[in-house]
Structure formats: C-alpha cells, structure tokens
Design a protein around this nucleic acid. Structure first.
Length: 872
RNA sequence: GCGGGCGUGGUGGAAUGGUAGACACACCGGACUUAAAAUCCGGAGGGGGUAUCCCCGUGCGGGUUCGAGUCCCGCCGCCCGCACCA
C-alpha cells in the first residue's frame, strides 16, 4: 500500500458515511461533560456555497473537533437564514414560489456542506422560513409587546413608488431605487419598532466585558451607539407675531461655549420650521430643496452649509439685553438631540462655515494654551482643541470640563416658561430598530387591527400566523397585502371584522435568536431556559466582519429582550467572537476588457514573469489585481470543483494555512496544489511507518538513543503548540507546527533501520500524534491514516494526546552571544547554568576575544537561558 | 473630518523587548528517470570577501534600552468602519 496515492474522492464519502452511521457528531443535552458551543454564522441559502463559507466552516470545524478531542460535550449546529428579498426576486423572475426556490437551495447547499466533512449535528438543523421556527418568533414578539419592548410609531422611510415598498438606505442609490430606478420618496409610515434605544446604555457598557471580541468590533459598536453627554437648553423667544412658542430647546455638548453663541438653528424637519414655512414661501422652498437632497449620501458630504433666516430672535441666555437670530439650517438633523442647536462659530467648523456665509459674529471663548488673549482670532478653521475659557463672564478662567459643569449648574437653577432652563442629558445615535418590512417572504408580524378594539396581538392559540402559499408576484409591492382573503380575520376580542398586519419582520430578527434555538430545536417553546442557559453564551462564534454592527448588536439586544420575557437567563449571547477575513483571487480580463473566470485561464511562469492565456482560444489574458471573490468580476472558484479535484481536506487545509485567519486569504492554484501534495506526503509517511514496522519485527530491542529522544521531544512539543495555537485561533501557526513535525518525522523515518526498536517506537508515536494533529483540519485523511496505522476506533473519537512535560523542556539551551547588541556567536550550556559561569565561558570564546580586541567589557548582561550581551 | 488597523525577502507570512525572515508558495541546483511528472537532497534578504569573515537590512526621522520589527514621539503610505451627531 505504501506505493499507492491517497485518493480523497474515494475516502472522503466513505468516512462521511461512517460518521453519519455512528452519529459521531450528534450532541446530547444530557451529557454530563463540560459543554462547549461553537457556532459559525449560518448561511443565507442563496444557491451554492462559496469559498467564504468554506473558510468560515473549516475554522469552526477545527475548533469543534479540537474541543471534542479535549473531552468536551461540543455543540456544533447548522441551519439556514432562509427568509429574505432574493427569494422574492427569484420568484418574480422564475414564476415560482419563494419557498420552492429557498428549499431547493437549502438541499443543494446542505449536500455541499456535507461533502466538506464538517462535524455538525445535523439533527438540530432548521430553516427560519419554516413555521416550526417562526411561530416561536411570533410568540416572542407577543411576549415582547406585553413587556413594553415593542412600539408602533410613525417614521420617515425611503419609499419606492414603483416597486411600492420601503427600501433600506443601502438600497437607495443616487436617490433612486436600486431595482426600479424610480426616484425615492420620503414617506411617513406607521411601523413596528423594537425599543433597542432603551438598552443603549447597557449595550454600550457591556461591551467592556466582551474581552474575547475583536477590539475593532467593539469600537464599531461603541461608535454606532454613539453616546454623547450634553445639555438640553431653552432659549426664550423674543415676543413676535409669527409663532406662539415660548422657547426653543436645543441640545449641546458644549455649554461651556455659550458666551460664543451667535445664532440658533432649527432643522428643516423641526415642527417650528413647518409652522413658519406655512407663511414663509422662501423657507418652504428651502425645506423642499433639502428634502430632495436628503437621500443621496454623497451629496450630503459636500453640501454647502446653507440656511434661511426665520425673522425670529431669541434672548441670549447669559448676556442680558442681547438677542440671537434664529435660522433654519440644512446641517441640523431632526433625528439627533432636539433638532435645534445654538451655533458657536469660533469652536465648531460647521457653525463657522455658516457664520462666514451669513456674516454672523465669530466670538472666540476658548483660548489655546500658548495663545495670547488679546490677539487670538479665528480664521477659516474653528478651534476645537483644549484650552481655557475666556471672554465668558463667570466661566472665564475655567477649563473646558469645569466650564461645562458650571454652565450646566447655572442653567439648571434658572427657569424659562416655568421649567429649568438647562437639563443635563445623555444622547445616543442609536435609533430604535424598525422591523416592519412590506414584503411577503418574512415572518408575519402576529398582530390584528380592529377598528373598534385597536391593535391586538394574535392570541397564542392561533399561532403560528402562517404565510399563505397561494400568492402571486405579478404586481409590485407586498404579496400579502394583495392576497384576496388572508388579511381579513375576525377581531380576537370583539369578533367584528378586522385586518391582519401584512408587514413581515426584518430578517435580522430571525438571526437574532437562532443560536438559542439550536440548544433545543424541537422544543414546543422558543427555548427551554434550563437547556439554553447551560449551553449559552456561545463559546466561540465565527463569521464575517460585515456583521460587526447590525447582526451582532441586534442579537445582543434580543438576548436581553429574551431575558426580560423569561426565555433565557443571560445578557450576552456570544462570549468569544472571531471575524475572519475574506477569500480573494486574482482577476483576469480578455483583450476586450471582459472578465474571465479562473477556470478558463492558463497561467504560465517563466523566470520571474507570469503570463496568462485563455484555455480554449489561447488568446492573451491580462492579470489584474487581487480582489474579493465576486460574481461580477468572475474571480470565483467553486468549492464543488475543488472538492471534486483535490478533496475537501485539501480545500480545508489550504484555507487554514499561511494567512492569519482574521486577514484576507488569496486563493491560488499553486497554494491548493501545495496543500494537496502535503496530503500525499503524510500518506507516504504513514505507509513508510507501517512498512518499517513490518520489516523490523524480528530485530532485538535497543535502548532509546539521542535520535529517538529528539524525535519524541519534537512530537510532544508540536502537540503542545498546536493545541495552544488552535485555542488562540492561530490556525496558520498550527499548520506551520504540523509542517515542522512532518519534516522531522520524514527525516527520521529514513534513519530508523539504525536502531530499530527505540527509533521505531518514537517514530510510531510521532506519526500517531501527527495524525491526531491534522484530524481537526483534514479529518478524512486522518481517519484513513488512523486506520492504516492499525489504531482502534475513529480518530474523531480519540482523546487529544497527553504530552509528557519532561519532554517539553530541553536540558541544554543554545544562548546567542551579542557584543553591543549584535550577534557574534553562541554557546550551548546546560539549562540553569549560573550567570558567572556563563560569563567566564563567553569571555574565553575566541570570536568574542577578537571582538573585544584586548579591551575589558564594560558590562555583561546575562539573561538566564536566553541570551548574553557583552557591552564594550 | 473622526475612529480602528496595517507597513518585514520574489510572494503569503513567523518572531513573551532577546539569534529577524519559522513554515509554506514560487524560484534555482543536484539525485532518480530513456524522458517528463511525482519524489528525495540541497541553495537562497542585499552587498562585499568568497573559508568558518565583515557591512547593511523590518515604510521614513528621532527617542528609551545592555539589546527595538516589537515600546514612546513625529512624519509618509495603504486598508477598513462611521460620517453634517451639535
């Protein structure tokens, strides 16, 4: 057998079947061993898996298989994030049902995932589009309504008048709908919201406890929540005939600069603006104009600071007798704070731009540390750094922080309209989570609207609210709304005619609790709290960084909502988070500039130049930049083809090699071939080992020699280091360790005949370990080798090798010797040799003596067992 | 603009403040072979001496240290996220 090549095409399906039959990866909730939950972000069933999935699931599988070997009860499930717009679009294009398309995709992709040999408990599989899943989501929605976590309110949305649907911001391109191309309108719609903003402070504070999350993701969430501490401040209106409001409330984080105020500005969407616009055509026109520009983000960036004077004045809050003009300005957002600001041009760039345009005063009130109060002036740039307050009455001389406190206190004690003039307030950028979608293919919101009784939850006995199957997609808009009968139901309270809610939930709701459902996927309740609490939080969650904010923030919120409604007993769903990099590939173009897929390209290397030609036509192809694999650039490699050609193990190994997992990895044909060669190399090593054992049977036993001990050291050290690297998710380093061990074993397999018994034993031990080390990464090859070595059972069931601590420490250490920090030689000494002894040895070295050139060293630094530095 | 990250051979990348370049890919040489593939052995940061030696070298400039790819300060470049947030 040693001459035969390893054939993954034959062995991989074989072992997959063995694992299946033995139910090797089915996890029991009653297992008394320590639980470990590893989860990869579940896929959207778009049609076929891509290399990004392969990378994601290869990593997760290494973690799962490793912890299983470590004796833990590992939960490693898989499911489908199956609701969403692509299914509806496919339904329209193919004149089929979204469910038909989705379920067919799931079947295909499940087959693909199975061919990867993942250690998944498929008995826990579910798809979010099935009533068995979403009925629990509806039940929780109702629980959340009862707990006051859900609200229904008017909100401005992007409305596509052609497709008759709400669009997410990212679906609006240049102010037009991404599908229809129609100019998007801003509409006020009544929508359902989860009150995530009530949890803003908690979600922010708890980030500090997520120590096993990437700092980057925590920072992104922090920014997204966007906490800012400031003051709500009332500006008393100078009496006028236009409006009857007594005051304007602004929000500011810089009350310390109040003496520098030179205007007040309202948002175009401010209620007072609307009131004024009724009798002011110029203002009405301005509001209309800003609205038109409102949707296109690129224009906002460059938009000039513009405004219209309202004719109103407010009293200056600290300078008696002075007034400030009130403008409506395009840069003031209604969504944030109170929708009104006071402008301090000297210390805010936007305010300064505005003030210069409309000739408003610029009054510096913060003096930079090294500036002179008499001559300090503001040019084109606002001064936003630290300094001391000046020109500011009772605030003068204070630091910015002190002045903020003093101003807050001052305004808290004064009243306007019988209310305190100032009130300290914390503001968040985080908005409530609007979950209403005017789409068919989502979880129906379980609510009934009755003219008499109002908005009522669907009674529990009537759940689930199932999507009707007989729908058509020939009209734009929400197919649920078009359905002739579905929405007409009797009111659950009065029995009179009522109407079902036809909005469905954002698909992010589906993915906000699936990890909890996996712990008891067949339960009659959304979760079984005892079981969920035992498994959760997920020990290691792995997925793309593109979900750093939305999915992960929503899940953190939803876990809290589930806690509030008694479905789980914890706040944070994911203890460890890892965000893996993307899979990239070179791009290729024909002379005509068309993208060409890698399968159609033949690459050639001659010396240092690489060239490419078309596989069929032989026409020259230009090699372009390395980019994320994408259909539009055709630089994709199909996992199925790789599995068919090289096997799943090769694909998995390559995905784990070389690149650190959090960085992008470049898929190359050469890299895959290297991985495939390594697979054969291990197989040969196993074959050689077995053959050597057979040849050596009658040789007399010999004591262990240095060679054998050295090999054992290498093997035990590799076991230790691979374990450390897997636990730290440094898969590329684990791979390098495995290469090193393999090299050592291959080298010594050639030396075995010299001292058969001891060396053969060391070799067999090392090869056995090697097989166990590769098992999490190349599980099929590992099983085949395990069997060839004649080991018991499956390597998937074998416990992780026990390392002998004595073999991890060397008796001798090689100490480099530096002279003035430059390496000039080395000595080998017994571990723990006294520094004085080392100094003596170092000085007697010829190379060192030559460097010293007769001089006496000023100092000799000896770092025990590490390094020596001679300072001259 | 704000926030985060990164910068090391031909390439991907290693390196608790302690021998820079582990490991791999690509490349070059040799062995085996009629030949090729596969495999095995060896070489390789740059420059010079070519022996077993010396100089330079982790984006650039400073600093701390016996010793800096690593820590600090200031630049340059690239990537990602957010962005009129008062």
């Amino acid at each position: 057998m040693s001459g035969e090549r390893y054939n993954p095409r034959e062995m991989e399906p074989h072992w997959q079947e063995v694992w299946d039959q033995r139910q090797s990866f089915v996890t029991s909730n009653d297992d008394p061993r320590e639980p470990y939950y590893v989860l990869e972000m579940f896929p959207y069933p778009s049609g076929r898996i891509h290399m990004g999935h392969v990378r994601n699931y290869a990593m997760g599988d290494v973690v799962a298989r490793y912890h299983r070997a470590r004796g833990k009860n590992v939960l490693h499930p898989m499911g489908w994030d199956a609701f969403g717009l692509p299914a509806e679009n496919a339904a329209i294009e193919r004149k089929t049902h979204p469910g038909t398309w989705t379920r067919a995709n799931i079947a295909t992709m499940k087959g693909q995932l199975k061919s990867m040999g993942l250690s998944i408990d498929w008995t826990r599989e579910f798809a979010t589009c099935e009533p068995e899943y979403y009925k629990h989501q509806q039940a929780m929605f109702i629980d959340m309504m009862a707990a006051g976590l859900v609200t229904r309110k008017q909100s401005k949305v992007n409305w596509d008048p052609v497709d008759m649907t709400v669009l997410a911001n990212e679906q609006v391109i240049d102010g037009k709908g991404w599908r229809s191309g129609a100019v998007v309108e801003q509409r006020e719609l009544t929508q359902w919201f989860f009150k995530i903003s009530d949890f803003a402070e908690e979600l922010l504070e708890a980030l500090d406890g997520l120590t096993e999350w990437p700092e980057k993701v925590r920072t992104m969430q922090r920014n997204w929540i966007g906490r800012s501490e400031g003051l709500r401040l009332l500006f008393e209106m100078v009496p006028n005939n236009t409006v009857n409001a007594g005051s304007i409330e602004v929000f500011t984080t810089r009350p310390d600069t109040i003496f520098g105020a030179s205007f007040v500005a309202l948002s175009p969407d401010h209620p007072l603006t609307a009131e004024l616009a009724r009798s002011n055509p110029a203002l009405a026109e301005f509001v209309e104009e800003t609205r038109r520009l409102g949707t296109a983000t690129e224009t906002i960036e460059k938009a000039e600071k513009k405004g219209v004077f309202t004719g109103l004045q407010v009293k200056h809050p600290v300078l008696d007798g002075q007034t400030l003009p009130v403008y409506v300005a395009n840069f003031v957002l209604m969504d944030y704070g109170t929708g009104a600001i006071f402008g301090c041009p000297a210390h805010d760039q936007r305010d300064l731009d505005f003030a210069r345009k409309y000739d408003l005063p610029v009054i510096p009130v913060v003096l930079p540390p090294d500036a002179d109060a008499a001559s300090f002036a503001i040019g084109d740039e606002a001064y936003v750094d630290t300094g001391h307050i000046f020109n500011s009455g009772f605030l003068s001389g204070l630091s910015i922080a002190e002045a903020k406190t003093a101003a807050a206190q001052f305004f808290a004690e004064r009243t306007v309209d019988g209310k305190p003039q100032g009130k300290v307030e914390v503001n968040y950028r985080l908005r409530d989570w609007g979950v209403s979608r005017q789409r068919y293919w989502g979880c129906p919101i379980p609510v009934i609207h009755c003219e008499v009784c109002g908005t009522l939850p669907v009674p529990n006995k009537d759940l689930p609210v199932v999507l009707p199957e007989d729908v058509t997609f020939d009209k734009p808009g929400n197919a649920l709304d078009h359905h002739p009968t579905w929405k007409h139901v009797p009111c659950p309270q009065c029995g009179g005619p009522a109407r079902r809610e036809t909005d469905t939930m954002d698909t992010f709701v589906d993915s906000s609790w699936y990890y909890a459902r996996f712990t008891a996927p067949q339960a009659e309740t959304p979760t079984v709290p005892d079981i969920a609490n035992r498994w959760l939080p997920v020990d290691q969650y792995i997925g793309g960084v593109e979900h750093a904010i939305l999915h992960l923030l929503y899940s953190r919120y939803f876990t809290r909502a589930m806690k509030a409604t008694g479905h789980v007993g914890l706040d944070e769903p994911f203890k460890g988070l890892f965000t893996q990099g993307m899979v990239t590939h070179e791009t290729y173009r024909s002379a005509a500039g068309e993208w060409v897929a890698p399968v159609d390209v033949v690459l050639e290397t001659s010396g240092e130049t690489r060239s490419a030609t078309h596989l069929e036509t032989g026409a020259p192809i230009s090699i372009g930049s390395v980019e994320k694999m994408s259909k539009s650039k055709k630089n994709v490699v199909d996992p199925d083809e790789i599995v068919a050609t090289y096997g799943a193990d090769t694909a998995r190994w390559f995905m784990l090699s070389d690149s650190p997992p959090e960085r992008d990895v470049q898929w190359t044909e050469a890299g895959v071939e290297g991985a495939s060669r390594f697979q054969q190399r291990i197989w040969r090593l196993v074959g050689d080992t077995v053959a050597l054992r057979a040849q050596s049977q009658d040789l007399p036993p010999v004591a262990a020699d240095e060679e054998a001990t050295a090999l054992r050291r290498a093997a035990h050290r590799a076991v230790q280091q691979v374990a450390d690297d897997i636990e730290g998710l440094r898969f590329n380093r684990a791979v390098a360790q495995i290469y090193e061990l393999t090299n050592a074993l291959v080298r010594s397999s050639g030396l075995v005949s010299a001292a058969p018994a001891a060396r053969l034993a060391a070799l067999e031990e090392g090869v056995g370990y090697l097989v166990q080390l590769i098992a999490p990464m190349m599980p099929h090859l590992a099983e085949t080798c395990w069997q060839a070595l004649g080991r018991e059972g499956l390597v998937a069931d074998a416990p992780w090798p026990q390392v002998d601590p004595a073999l991890l420490v060397d008796n001798d250490v090689v100490m480099p010797i530096q002279v003035n920090g430059k390496r000039r030689g080395e000595i080998t000494v017994a571990k723990g040799t006294a520094p004085a002894e080392i100094e003596r040895m170092v000085l007697s070295l010829e190379a060192i003596a030559r460097m010293l050139d007769g001089k006496t060293p000023r100092k000799i630094v000896v770092v025990p067992d590490r390094i020596v530095n001679v300072v001259v």
